[in-house]
Amino acid sequence: MFQYLLRRLLLIIPLFIGITLITFVVIHLAPGEPVEMQTALSPKASAKTRERLREFYGLDKPLHVQYANWVKKMARFDFGRSFAPDGRPVIDKIREAIPVTLSINFIALILEFGLAIPIGILAATHRDTLVDKGITVFVFLGFAIPTFWLALVLMYICGVKLNILPISGLHSLGANKLTGLAWLWDMAKHLILPLGVATFGSLASLSRYTRSTMLDVFGQDYITTARAKGLPERIVIFRHALRNGLLPIITILGFSLPGLIGGSVIFETIFAIPGMGRLFYMGVMSRDYPLVMGILVIGAFLTLTGNLLADLAYAVADPRIRRGNTA
């Protein structure tokens, strides 16, 4: 167990180097100069100004030096300054945006698991009945509907036509005057649509997975034994079948992180939520290289951490790994 832990932790180092390398290469493959964004709009910018800007951002140095400098600074959590007019440190911008995205994704994840696993079990216990087929159609719809389209339609119906839900941002104007529950309720109303869209879209894989695993487990001998003992079906399903069937879900949880963070671009942009996705989109559109690189690295690092935690949780939950039978 200890060895396993140590090896998993050590593996982070090469993975992290790989992440920074790929990020750096991807950004520097792009044609065009980042300083052009700042100089193209002002005709007064001379070649000299441009040179000075290049020097200021360290773009005049050879690539490997730039990479080394970038990584060295990153070790001190210094991601450089944003190219945006405000010129604030990238890390500050990211620090403001991360909690928004992470908490929204966290709630979406809880909703996803809270919904997908029960309907997956329901589909399995009612195999090939109308319930099963209805659930299949429902989750397939969620998977196949383009997120942005569903978001738009819901915005139009709930926000414009019926005017029952706010459609952009996290708070209403003047929400800072509200206190306690009223403030929370205001934010909850803003989150209903984004969360609904995000959750609906992610139900399919997990519920289908739950269904097929449960069906597999139902065929096992120990389930037959449990039933033969005359145990109530409820206990057979939840205590005997579910426990064994759901172990791998921990791993799925870890793997769903990059998808969730990536998907946040769409709904944060549409619903004007000030999170990582929107920040990244704006950064990309204005060629804000330090910001884009910073978010890529941090996003990947979050996933790396998530996967590691999932692996550890799996090791703790699965006695076969906990006792060190597996390498």
């Binding site: 993975l15 793997f255 990536g262 989109y281």
Partner: peptide, 13 residues
């Protein structure tokens, strides 16, 4: 390493 990146971010960039 590739699986760590939020794919959509990488594509956008």
């Amino acid at each position: 390493i590739m699986l760590c990146f939020p794919t959509f971010f990488l594509m956008l960039a």
